[in-house]
Computed example of a mutant assay.
Amino acid sequence: MKHHRIILMMMIIGIASFLTSCASTPKIKRIDVDKIIDISGRWNDTDSRLVAEDMIRDCLKQPFLESFKSKKHRMPTLIVGFIKNRSHEHINIQTFVKDLERALINSGQVQFVASKGERAQIREERLDMARHASEDTMKGPGEEVGADFMLIGVINTIRDEASGKAVMYYQVNLELIAMANNIKVWVGEKKIKKLIKKPGLSW
């Protein structure tokens, strides 16, 4: 009898463990990457993409672009410099930078050069080519295209909360600066305001 009780107890424990593991298994559903989803109210992929697209669209509508094309008879070449995160949150600035780059390149109105880190990697590859590649395929130094303008910016936030409610205010400021003379040819600003209602809200 005692032996049967032990077996029964082990079966009960096994079933309980199985049910617990099933209950704790996360449910995963794949969704469209362009679908807007706000869970925490913090800066997310949608904010990054929409802000980048809106600000670049505004930038490329400004007079400097046509003025440059008429004087130089070519598209301007741009590079993205430092985008600073001065918000309350950890924001993946690199993702935002890539969204800016994509919006610029896809506009078809400007050329875009590699970043400082990317250029270092490419230059290292050129040195390797000089040692190992054939002359007709080797890429030599001194043929790089310099940027005409640099895009820099900053992300700031203001946070206000009370009684389970919070307002998150984001302000993104971008500036396009001429490399030749440091003249700012465009200054853009984008604001986002989110009202978040959550019991026991804690940031």
Rank of each mutant, 00 (worst) to 15 (best):
M150K: 13
A103R: 02
I39R: 01
I56D: 00
R30A: 14
L100F: 03
V80I: 15
D148V: 03
W203H: 11
L8S: 12
S40F: 01
R30Y: 13
H90T: 04
A166G: 04
L100T: 02
H4E: 11
N173L: 10
F64G: 00
D32M: 11
K190D: 08
V172D: 02
D128H: 15
T137I: 14
I83C: 01
R131F: 13
L19T: 09
M10Y: 06
I6G: 07
I158E: 15
M10I: 11
K116C: 09
I93V: 05
K184A: 12
N92K: 01
I79Y: 01
I155Y: 00
I15Q: 03
K116L: 09
K184G: 05
D160A: 14
I155R: 02
F18S: 10
I31F: 05
N156H: 10
E118G: 04
V110R: 01
E118N: 10
I37A: 01
H88V: 07
K69V: 08
V187E: 12
I196D: 06
M9S: 13
Q121A: 14
H90L: 10
D128L: 15
T157R: 10
D99C: 01
I152H: 09
I183L: 05
I183F: 09
H90W: 11
I12F: 11
D136V: 10
K194L: 06
E143V: 15
R74W: 07
M9P: 05
N181H: 07
D136F: 10
K29R: 07
F149M: 01
M138L: 11
I105E: 09
T77G: 05
S134V: 12
S21Y: 14
I12H: 04
S202I: 15
G146K: 13
K84G: 02
A178C: 07
D58I: 04
V167A: 03
Y170R: 03
I39H: 04
A178V: 05
